[in-house]
Computed example of a mutant assay.
Amino acid sequence: MGQQGDKAREILMDAAEELFATHGIDAVSNRKIAERAGTANHSAIAYHFGNRDELIRSLINRHLGQLEGRKAELIAGLGDTATLSDVIACRVLPWVEQLESMPHPSWRARFLYQIRTIPSVAAVFISSFEINDDFDILLENVRGTLEGIPEAVLRARADVLGHMALGICAEYETQIHEGSEEGSWLSVGYFLIDAGAGMLSAPVTHPGDFMALIPTPTLI
């Protein structure tokens, strides 16, 4: 498409991410995105992305290569004595490091949180992350510390952890935008690691029959 086309795509994605994060997915039209991007061509989304779902997919995958590279680096560093916290850190730290590296204001966490909570685009989100979901493989490294916890419970807790992490990061990103934040992205990350380790390893006190209704988890 060339440099000019690539730049136009980036400007449109910047505008879409901000508007989606601020107003929600379904409340933002393609026309509003084009206007926020400073173009009079209200068909710009169709021209550069084909359709709205492809725009959303492009936004979801926008920084995925960097995220996966950092995650692979951390996984490669896991030793034979890796703890559950070490395993969770392989998923959490690349995410918070990426958020910390973004220019201010950033909209990434709030955009992804909107995606997770809007049924009309949830399928796009899930399909974009399915091929990258190796959390089950990572858990095999520490399966001994999770003895007695049924697989269905682990998967349901992992889904809760994903929702919790996105929600907390979205809130912290808002606080940064408003200038009211305390601590750092790294402190947010280690809070999530500790909370996740506690959640996944907590004893099971009652059958979780309702978990059949919980979808396959897609963590950050």
Rank of each mutant, 00 (worst) to 15 (best):
G2Q: 00
Q3R: 08
E10T: 08
I11T: 13
L12N: 01
F20Y: 15
F20R: 01
T22E: 15
T22D: 14
I25D: 12
N30F: 12
N41C: 12
H42K: 09
A44Q: 13
A46I: 06
A46H: 12
E54M: 13
I56C: 11
L59H: 06
R62W: 10
Q66E: 15
Q66D: 14
A72N: 07
I75L: 10
G77F: 11
L78M: 09
T81H: 11
I88P: 05
I88Y: 04
W95P: 00
E97W: 04
M102H: 12
H104E: 14
A109F: 02
Y113I: 01
Q114L: 03
I115Q: 04
I118N: 10
P119W: 02
V124L: 09
F125C: 04
I126V: 15
S128T: 00
F129C: 08
N132Q: 01
D133C: 01
D134L: 01
F135Q: 01
L138A: 03
L138H: 05
G148Y: 09
I149V: 11
E151G: 01
L154T: 03
A158S: 15
D159Q: 03
H163M: 10
E173K: 02
E173I: 05
I176Y: 14
I176S: 09
G179C: 04
E182I: 10
S184Y: 09
L186F: 15
G189K: 00
G196F: 02
G198Q: 06
G198F: 05
M199P: 08
P203C: 06
T205M: 11
F210L: 13
I214S: 06
P217I: 04
P217L: 06
